[in-house]
Amino acid sequence: MVSNSYQYEDTASAQDLQPKQLRHLAWRSLLLQASFNYERMQAAGWLYSILPGLKVIHKNKKDLSKSMKDHMEFFNTHPFLVTFIMGVILAMEQKKEDRDAIRGIKVATMGPLGGIGDALFYLTLLPITASIGASLAVNGNILGPFVFLIMFNVIHFGVRFGLMSYGYKTGVKAISKLKEGTKHVSRAASIVGLTVVGGLIATYVSFKIDYTWTQGESELNVQTDILDQIMPAMLPLAYTLLVYWLLKKGRSPIVLIGLTVFVGLVGSFFGIM
């Protein structure tokens, strides 16, 4: 191999993105989940959101293709905070960072931001603003819905557009410092990324056996009394590794999605999940 697969062909930094271009991308990020699905989740919407930026950055057609292909990989984060990741990643693309490092940063940031976003928006902002709006509405006050929408969206759009430029500036600054030793950066990014993936599996894959075995007086709950005693989150880990192994054997993700639906239906039919 002559060219290195981690690197872009054209390694010269592209021009800075202008605030106007960044704003355009922030608008596009509204469609992050337009093509949501269980195989890649937000991947195609993520690519859609950053695409005009990538086109400006990668004039070399082969590099654009490489970059677009990388950004079709699994992606899932909070739809309000995604602009921060967009800013950082575009700064890295612009500096033609190592592609492994770009992937590592993407994976390392998407999980934590997902958790923060849920806590901030769905568990705090939404209940507060919606209950104010609803309390007006149940009294027949027409202002209720408007009060809710204005309060909610001032913060929503403020965060979305603010984080876009903040992420971009942060990215540009951090990268110029880390430019020497890209390989170490990409290794560090992979370490954070994989630690997070390990945590994500235990946190977000929900796979439980709901069956209690009764014999005379004694009851034995399969999940809490057996499986959790051996290892918590054992089934999520086991299932993920099974899928990993099947993927490695060349099974298509579609088949695996079908398998998962089948598992869910069978488990539910027999009342054990």
Binding site: E39, F74, I201, V243
Partner: peptide, 9 residues
């Protein structure tokens, strides 16, 4: 269970 597939990928 579905997120397992994305994480495996």
């Amino acid at each position: 269970i579905m997120p397992a597939i994305g994480f495996a990928m």
